[in-house]
Simulated assay, not measured.
Amino acid sequence: MPSQNLLELKAITKDYLLGKTKVSALRGVDLEVSAGEFTVVTGPSGSGKTTLLNIIGCLDRATSGSYTLDGEEVGNRDFDALAEVRNRKIGFIFQSFNLIPVLNVAENIEFPCMVRKDSEGKAALRQRVVALAAAVGLEPYLHHKPDELSGGQRQRVAIARALITEPRLVLADEPTANLDSATSEQILDLMLRLNREKGVTFLFSTHDPRVVRHARRALHIQDGKMVPGELQAEALKAAGTH
């Protein structure tokens, strides 16, 4: 029977060379995420969270192990093939927003579709942009540049941009790190609503206990290894997230 998981990692390792020294960032990571999940991965700095998201997001390749996304083995593909998978199936939300300063809100949201050179007409794309902007509370700001927006509004633009390609998976790397408490709550509530109403699968890396409290599943990584399930609660508590 075929797997129902959206993504599966099996025995993933990632090694780097610093001069002549080998550094193991990931050490045999296994992970399964089903479609529609709202999951966070916590861990101290240097534990492997960002490396894990980079591999899942097809921004990097594992040294060894198997990675299956949406039923396709992608871990053994070259970087051009990984870029195609990334553009078709994955959206990204970054803590630094990564908006293009010379483009307005509407242009930033539609930018991934322009890069992909989709066959969709400009009028149809702009209609989807407007609808998505309205869904995240940005419709009045479509013609504003990023420097005219608050931090929370910029993150809303980043969320809409991540969703415009209708990805199977959205990865969020510390999405609340540069936001105050009230704005973080608003952004998390928005992502939960999108998860619930549109079925978008979210996978976060975070240090933020507020994000963990909103998650439906919380995992912990330490020293490049996933902490076993029975130790998750203890590890999360030790990390200050409960």
Rank of each mutant, 00 (worst) to 15 (best):
L169C: 06
R168Y: 02
E197Y: 02
L192P: 05
D189L: 06
D173K: 07
S205F: 02
L190M: 10
L169T: 06
A182Q: 15
K198S: 08
L179T: 11
A182H: 14
F202H: 05
T183V: 11
L194S: 12
N195W: 04
L192C: 12
T206Y: 00
V200S: 01
P167K: 00
L171P: 10
S205Y: 00
L194C: 13
R193M: 08
N195D: 07
N195G: 01
D180R: 10
Q186W: 07
P167A: 02
T176P: 05
M191A: 05
N178S: 15
L203V: 15
M191V: 13
P167C: 01
A182K: 15
L171N: 11
L194D: 13
D173M: 06
S184C: 11
A182Y: 08
L188A: 09
F204G: 11
T176N: 02
G199N: 10
D180S: 09
Q186E: 15
T201P: 11
K198P: 05
T206R: 10
K198C: 01
E166Y: 08
L203H: 00
S184L: 11
A172F: 00
L179P: 13
D180A: 08
F202N: 08
L179D: 13
R168K: 11
V170L: 04
T183G: 07
L192N: 11
F202C: 12
T201A: 09
V200H: 00
A172N: 01
S205I: 14
D180V: 05
E166N: 15
P175S: 03
E197W: 00
A172I: 07
E166R: 14
S181K: 12
D180M: 06
P175Y: 03
S181A: 12
Q186G: 10
S205D: 07
L190I: 11
A177D: 02
N195V: 12
N178W: 09
R196G: 00
L179Q: 13
V200R: 00
E197L: 05
T183H: 02
A177K: 11
E185V: 14
L194V: 13
L190R: 08
T206V: 03
L192G: 14
A177N: 06
N195K: 05
I187C: 02
R193C: 05
R193D: 12
S184D: 14
M191T: 12
P175H: 07
S181R: 09
G199V: 14
E174I: 09
R196P: 04
I187R: 02
M191K: 06
